[in-house]
Simulated scan of single mutants.
Amino acid sequence: MKPSLSWDEQVALLDNRGLTIPDKAECAQFLAATNYYRFSGYARYFQRPPHLGDDDFRQGSSFDEIRAIYDADEALRARLVIPLARVELVLRSHVARVIADNHGAYGRYLDEDFYTEIGDRKSTVEFCLRDIDRSKDRHILRYREAGIDRADYSKLPVWSAVEAWSFGTLSKVIERGGQGTLADAVATSTGIAKAGFAYRVRAMVYLRNRCAHHSRLWHHSVLDAGPTPNNVRHKAKRVAGQFEPRSVLDVIASLDDIACRTGVADPLLPRLVADYGRNSAFWQGLAKPQSPRDHGRDGP
């Protein structure tokens, strides 16, 4: 069991492990605002491999260097918020339009057999109803009656319902709706390639959730990586250099493509390259994510 350490004691621990800390008061203030555990997710890439019994920092490692990586990661999450939000909104609009035009605006989207479910997971309708039930918006409340456990939403139009769904629920509707036909129809409606469309949307949800929860993007291998089309990937690599299929940059390349094709945002990758440079430690950690165990001893 590890003891709980004060912020000054945390600074002392970093100092004892060989981290250069020019201003210990500033470091303590940063840890108080950030959390030592969150900071350690970045710091471990500057340490000798802890799993080999040595968690000292490599010679020359400094708090300011790690803080710069942390700040760049925080700034990247903030810059992703707007394009991700705009893509989410345009998808809501097209999902509602496609369902209303092809399947009817009322009721059908809440039928169990409207969806092709995956194994024994919670049904898509359950996710839809859960999100609608949680809504406090007037456009939803007017369909409820006091004292009824579950309202009758058969008269709730789909263009209203989509505004209550989380991005994750919207992604499930796209992937499973219309007995598997909805994804292709929404892709066609938005002018995006059909191949792998639903999984690309799922990758957007994954990235949005990491940003929303302030999770590390640097040296993160994306679990829900969508199949970014080869032509999109090749075009992005001409701007950004090489990056791995499960890297955050691959998802950003896919995001740029969807945002540009729907006209909701300008591409982000060129601006990121201009700001950080392909050879920076921050950029390399985005492009070629590694776990601390696989990370070499020579630098981040």
Score class of each variant (00 low, 15 high):
Pro22Leu: 10
Trp283Leu: 14
Leu31Cys: 07
Ile69Asp: 00
Arg48Met: 09
Ala33Pro: 00
Trp7Ile: 12
Glu175Val: 01
Leu84Gln: 11
Val239Ala: 07
Asn279Arg: 15
Lys136Cys: 11
Cys211Thr: 14
Tyr70Ile: 03
Ala287Leu: 12
Leu272Ala: 02
Asp113Pro: 11
Val81Ile: 13
Phe282Lys: 05
Gln10Pro: 12
Ile66Glu: 10
Tyr42Asp: 13
Thr262Asp: 04
Ala164Glu: 06
Arg79Cys: 08
Asp257Thr: 09
Leu80Gly: 01
Val95Cys: 10
Gln10Cys: 13
Phe243Ile: 04
Arg278His: 15
Asp152Lys: 06
Asp23Lys: 05
Val201Phe: 10
Val251Phe: 07
Asn231Ser: 14
Arg67Thr: 14
Cys27Glu: 07
Leu5Lys: 14
His213Asn: 07
Leu170Phe: 03
Met204Asp: 00
Gly147Glu: 02
Leu249Glu: 13
Arg134Ile: 06
Ala195Arg: 13
Thr116Arg: 09
Asp64Ile: 04
Ala151Arg: 06
Glu145Asn: 13
Phe30Tyr: 14
Leu217Gln: 00
Trp159His: 02
Tyr115Thr: 00
Gly285Thr: 05
Val125Gln: 09
Ala187Thr: 05
Gly107Asn: 08
Tyr106Glu: 05
Gln290Asn: 05
His220Phe: 15
Gly196Cys: 05
Cys128Gln: 01
Lys136His: 15
Val264Pro: 13
Leu13Asp: 14
Ala183Lys: 04
Arg210Ser: 11
Leu170Thr: 08
Asp55Glu: 14
Gln10Tyr: 04
Leu13Thr: 14
Lys288Gln: 11
Ala85Ser: 13
Asp55Thr: 06
Ala68Gln: 12
Pro300Trp: 15
Ser254Trp: 02
Gln29Asp: 10
His94Ser: 07
Thr124Cys: 03
Asp55Phe: 04
Asp113Gln: 11
Gln59Lys: 15
Arg271Thr: 09
Glu88Trp: 11
Glu145Lys: 15
Gln10Ile: 06
Arg17Tyr: 12
Tyr106Phe: 15
His103Ala: 13
Ser62Pro: 06
Asp23Trp: 01
His234Val: 14
Lys237Asp: 02
Ser6Gln: 10
Arg38Asp: 13
Phe282Met: 04
Thr34Gly: 02
Ser160Gln: 10
Lys194Leu: 07
Leu110Asn: 06
Ala259Ser: 09
Ala100Ser: 15
Arg210Thr: 08
Ala183Trp: 00
Leu14Ile: 08
Gln179Gly: 11
Val264Ile: 08
Val158Asn: 02
Ala253Leu: 09
Lys24Met: 07
Ser135Ile: 05
Leu19Lys: 08
Gln10Asn: 04
Glu9Gly: 04
Arg92Met: 00
Val95Lys: 08
Ala151Lys: 12
Thr190Trp: 00
Tyr143Gln: 03
Asp137Tyr: 10
Arg48Pro: 00
Asp256Ala: 08
Ala25Asn: 08
